[in-house]
């Protein structure tokens, strides 16, 4: 059998999933989500605040239980009762959380970034420094390595969270509203870096990384994203490519994409 004829396997597959509220999973924020994310794709999930974007990302990453439907990560069905085997699959996913990136505050920047490597390799900070230092340099964080993470501004904390998510060289990266509240310099840096990841960064397998970004404001992502999705009033709707989004005359889509403050 020729393997080239086989259709590529979806890295994330949600079928009729009901996405619950993180604090009360029985309250559905989004219903009947059918979503297939293929390797190398860059999806942008947009919608108003409270529409369930964060819950969708965390559910797709296997971090939240869901009421109905099925979730498959790399072809493995996630039931919520997985053991260490699922944890191995989870290492193939990176998550950058909204806000200050949910860094571990007792730790410094370098310790935060090194923690996943140290945990899996059972090593000291020195043991993993050969991989951590180049990553910190790539992120422009080398001067902050010994700074306690609690002292960082939100924008720099987000960058540390990105470094921590990338240190295990994941195949899929979830970004939850990463540009919220950032100045133009940081936004520019993020857009360039994410674009490099989307094309295939030499430090991360040199092949296009699968990316899923949630955002309140999709405009900075319009030129980067491959597929766009709208979460609104408990519904999940595919908007299509950038051209489809720009051509969409629906009032809500126009309000989100053409917003003038």
């Amino acid at each position: 059998m020729n393997t080239e004829d086989e259709p590529p396997q979806a890295v994330i597959e949600l079928s009729a999933v009901s996405v619950g509220h993180p604090r009360s999973p029985e309250t559905a924020l989004l219903e009947s989500v059918d979503w297939r994310v293929m390797p190398g794709e860059f999806w942008v999930v947009t919608g108003m605040q409270g529409s369930g974007k964060t819950a969708l990302l965390e559910t797709a990453a296997g971090l939240h239980p869901f009421q109905t439907g099925t979730l498959k990560l790399f072809g493995h069905t996630v039931t919520g009762t997985e053991g260490d085997e699922f944890k191995h699959q989870r290492r193939r996913l990176g998550v950058v959380f909204e806000g200050s990136g949910r860094l571990f505050h007792p730790l410094t920047v370098a310790e935060n970034v090194a923690l996943p490597l140290r945990y899996y390799r059972d090593g000291t900070l020195e043991d993993v420094s050969e991989e951590v230092i180049p990553l910190l340099e790539l992120m422009g964080l080398q001067g902050m390595a010994n700074v306690p993470s609690g002292r960082l501004s939100r924008a720099w904390a987000q960058r540390v969270a990105l470094a921590r998510a990338l240190v295990l060289k994941p195949e899929v990266l979830f970004l939850d509203n990463p540009l919220a509240g950032m100045d133009v310099q940081h936004v520019r840096w993020w857009r360039q870096f994410i674009h490099q990841l989307s094309l295939g960064h030499p430090q991360f397998h040199a092949k296009p990384m699968t990316l899923v970004a949630a955002c309140d404001d999709p405009r900075p992502w319009l030129e980067l994203g491959h597929q766009f999705v709208l979460a609104h009033e408990r519904h999940w709707r595919l908007l299509g490519t950038r051209a489809d989004v720009l051509a969409n005359r629906e009032a809500l889509v126009r309000e989100i994409t053409d917003a003038i403050f």
Binding site: E58, R91, V95, F97, R102, P116, R164
Partner: peptide, 13 residues
């Protein structure tokens, strides 16, 4: 602050 979910996201128990 969601640090527990952050640990889970990294596959750390």
């Amino acid at each position: 602050m969601g640090e527990v979910e952050a640990l889970e996201a990294l596959g750390i128990d």
